[in-house]
Amino acid sequence: MDLNNSDIPHVFLHTGDAFIGVKPTIVSTVLGSCVSISMFSSQLQQGAICHAFLPSRKEINPDKQVSIQICRYVDTAVDYLLECMTRIGANKSRLEVKIFGGSSGLTLSKVRAPNFFSVGDRNVKMAFKCLAEKGLHPKSMDVGGNVGRKILFATHTGDIWLKRLDKQTLLKNNLSPHD
C-alpha cells in the first residue's frame, strides 16, 4: 500500500494522546522512551492507538485524580483503549494488540541516568503488566533498545510500519528524542 498517495487521512499522534479509528486513518507518531499500544478488531476493521509517556498515574498522581490526558500514563491508556474498543463492539478476546517504543538509551546528552531511572523500560514493563491483567497478549512488538522509532498505524487493517531512528537520523530530521 502506498501511504503517500492514498486518499486515507493521516494524523499525527502527540504524547499523551490516543486515536480511535472508526474510519480508515493512518496514524503516525515518533517514540523514544514512550510506548504506543495499538488494539485492532479484524471483525470491525477498526483500531485504536495511544502514545503513553509515563508508566503509571499512581507514581505522579497518587490521589487517582483524572488526568486531562488519560493516555499520558501506560496504565490508564490500556484501560482507555480497551474501554473504547469494547464500546464500539470489539470482542476483547479477539483484539490484536501490538506494542512499540520504550527506548532506554536514546539521548543526545552525554549524561546517563542509572538503569533504575529508565522510563522506557518501566513503560514497557507496565504495558505488559496491564495487558496481562486484562487477559491481553501482544501479537507483535518492537520495544526497548537504544533507538527511537517512527510508526504508522492503519486503523482499518491493524498494520504497523516501523522505522528505527538513531541519533543521526533524529538530528538530521529535526526530531526530538525526548517524548
Rank of each mutant, 00 (worst) to 15 (best):
T15G: 09
T107C: 04
G135E: 08
V30L: 11
G16S: 05
G32F: 11
Y73E: 03
T86G: 01
I8P: 01
K64N: 15
I49K: 01
D159V: 10
M39S: 13
L170T: 03
Q65H: 11
L54N: 03
A77E: 02
G135I: 07
D179E: 05
M39E: 10
V97E: 07
A90Q: 07
S104I: 02
C84H: 05
E59F: 12
Q69V: 00
L131R: 08
T157E: 09
P24R: 13
G47Y: 04
P114T: 13
S41C: 03
R94D: 15
V22R: 12
S38F: 11
A77I: 03
H14G: 09
V124E: 02
L81N: 04
D75H: 05
F100M: 06
P114A: 08
V30K: 09
I49Y: 04
Q45L: 04
F40T: 10
L171S: 13
K98H: 09
L31C: 10
I8K: 12
L131P: 05
S36H: 03
I68P: 04
L13F: 08
C84W: 09
H137I: 11
R57E: 02
N174R: 14
Q45R: 15
P9Y: 03
V11L: 04
V11I: 15
M85L: 13
L31E: 05
Q69E: 12
G158T: 09
G144S: 10
L106Y: 06
V111H: 14
I26R: 04
V124K: 02
K139M: 09
Q45W: 04
K125C: 04
L131C: 10
N174G: 14
G135Y: 11
P177H: 10
P24Q: 11
C34G: 15
G101W: 08
G102M: 02
D166V: 02
S36D: 06
T107I: 01
